[in-house]
Amino acid sequence: MESPSQRFQRLLEPVHDRAVAFARGVCRSRSDGDDLMQEALLRALDKLPSLRDDGAFRFWLYRVIISVHRNRYKRSFWRRLLPLEAETEPASPDRNEELGGAERARLALAELPHEQREAIVLFELEGWKVEEIADLLGVSISAVKSRLVRGRERLRTIYTRKLGAPAVPRALLPGESR
């Protein structure tokens, strides 16, 4: 007879890597993402008996990650109020050239509301379809589309105002050669 741990291991194996990537995508840093994933795995293991259909494990795990992430997001208010360590410095146009593309995207995504960030990470980084995202987040397709459009607009604003998008060297842009 399969124990809950064995069942969890079996279900997690095919989706683990993508789930870790998603957790890293919605967090400010890779280490935060790894922490989020660990916390989500703990909760998922605890709640596994409530999952009846093994086929729905992928969606279920992503929902757990999102739920844990939103709780952390709420807690971060207190972290902002009583910071225990220096937060990541906001990027300045001068630092723009020092930042890699991934880091820049991470900083910009961190500025988005979590609904928009989750939608963009799932759509742009994970390659999910809009219908799948709507199903996962429990919202309508138009709501997901709206979040994607607004998120993209906001990213554009952040890039322009905070990350100095025009100052980005042309060589860094795709399709441009040095």
């Binding site: 890597d17 870790v20 990537a21 998603f22 890293r24 995508g25 890779r30 993402g33 890699g100 593309g101 991934a102 820049r104 995207a105 991470r106 910009a108 995504l109 963009i120 742009e124 980084l125 994970e126 993209r152 990213l155 554009r156 890039y159 322009t160 998008a165 025009p166 980005v168 860094l172 842009l173 795709p174 399709g175």
Partner: peptide, 21 residues
């Protein structure tokens, strides 16, 4: 400019997608 920014965002998100993996 918007196009340039959009291309940059797309490029950065692709870099992030690679980075998180």
């Amino acid at each position: 400019m918007n196009t340039q920014t959009d291309r940059m965002i797309t490029s950065d998100l692709a870099a992030l997608a690679t980075d998180v993996r």
